[in-house]
Design a binder for these strands. Sequence first.
RNA 1: GCUCUUGUAGUUCAAUGGAUAGGACAUCUCCCUCCGAAGGAGAAGAUGCAGGUUCGAUUCCUGCCAAGAGCACCA
Length: 566
Amino acid sequence: MKLRIEEILKKAVGGTAEFGVSVPEQENFGHYSTNVALRLAKSAGKSPLKLAHELAEKIRVGAPSGFFEKVEAAPPGFINFWLTNEAIQREFLEISKEKEFGKSSAGKGKTVIIEYSQPNIGKMMHVGHLRTTIVGDALANVFEYSGYKVIRWNYLGDWGTQFGKLIAAYKLWGDKKAIKANPLDELQKLYVRFHDEIKKDESLEKRGQEEFRKLEGGDKENRKLWEWFKKESLKELEKIYVALGVRFDTYIGESFFEKDMKPLVAELVEKGIAKRSEGALVVNLDALKLPPALIEKGDGASLYLTRDIANLRYRLLKYKPAKIFYVVGNEQSLHFEQLFAVAKILRLDSAELMHVKYGLVLGEAGKKLATREGRTILLKEVLEKAVTLAREIVEKKNSDLSAKEKGEVARAVAIGALKYNDLKENRHSDIIFDWEKMLDTSGDSAPYLQYTYARLKSILRKSRVGGQMSKVDPGTLGAEVELALIRKIIEFPDEVVRSAENLATSNLAVYLFKLAVAANKLYETTPVLKEENVERRNALLALIGTTAEVLKKGMGLLGIKTLEKI
RNA sequence: GCUCUUGUAGUUCAAUGGAUAGGACAUCUCCCUCCGAAGGAGAAGAUGCAGGUUCGAUUCCUGCCAAGAGCACCA
């Protein structure tokens, strides 16, 4: 709708002025508003308010008849617009017929690669993985809906010194049977024990590095162990993804680029980009005021950054993407600055590279997160606890549901709440982990949206009227709550665009909340099933049906499930 | 020490450089003979400090204060 208004304004006023249109927070400032007069006043040599009056007059004359109810210049120089009821109703009629409302083709023909989740093989996912997984998935949905071809890439941490350590630990204390019975648990235990023992015996550090060097060199025994660890780990990781309702197009991880390491390093040396320093190979980035980027360790083993460079080259060649997003925490900012810098030097610059960052998850004291026993909090635990809690709430609030339905509702509510809590915020600062906040199901939360949806669907169920939306007469929807709800609905496409542009899901989350508020207001004030005027009753049902569909669509983009009953 | 991120009510988050800084939680009042009270109506409460740019600054710039992260062989 915003775009349409911008077009009308441009046409009415003429010239090349950019009309930035926004929806004011205060209702008495119009349905839409523009500050164009304030921006242009200086170059036009006029006072902003005077210019606003002039432009407002041009718009009044030039806009299609019956579109604007009122066009008003307001100090210090805003131009505010009110749509006519008819324009709002007409817009509603159109969108109520659309199948995929808000879908755009802005990204047609373009590919975007979104890298997210990035768990380490051999370790359980912890709360730190939640944000990247959820945000990455939602961004992927939004870009898909904006017409892009999206590659959802789970770049597995399946290579590196950590595997040398794991192999060393396994050779020292490993129990084959125990691992077979309970793979991730046991592997994690081995890993933790190894780190504990390093404190007593420093030689273990070297031993781990040596095992990794052997693995990288193709040692058969180590290779076999590594493959086994990876296979078992993936099975467990997949369970979490199923629970979260997240999927990927590829799981190509760091190990895939192992073969590219030697040639890449050789190339960098040959081109004079990488130089030896303090035993290691580094790329000097002084010109960009960045610390040197480490390409190869003193012992000849490769590093994370080296593999990321190889990965980038591979992606550019294979997918020819327009954009690549790395959804990774703040603490890796330097790594990505270095990666992007090296990419520039290597002319790997055909795609727009972006580090989509977010704050760290910290423990209570603002320190690294750990439970009382010193473990990190596992993602599995969080999911389980959330579902248990949601189950209790369902039992209390809706005991009529069958056991099966209750389970389904508990899962959808729990996962939805977790996701929404992350998606509604756009934090670059660190986040203090808080069970209560994480599992909150009241107020501005996913369950509120789910509840609203279920309420609306409940009316539709009882109305026994099928989706004869095209036959309704929207002219009967004249009350302010109804028009306000429609105006909210027609903002949806703008919000999807905004989320894609800003690489932020918070706009969309906030929008859905406001949409739900408007829907609940209608619900509270307007009896639908008791409406005796059939025309109006059908129009209200159409409004409710469309609202429910937009809610469902928007929540779907965020990865949140809707249910007919909760 | 250097670099980056962040300072908004008791708490936790919003605000493409715009108008009277907007929600939620918690607190206090109300509303189930009415389509689902996981709801609705209302009250109270905030921009770390000091400058600067601008018609206009929570937003941009500088300094200070505070919190967190990163800074050579981890990822």
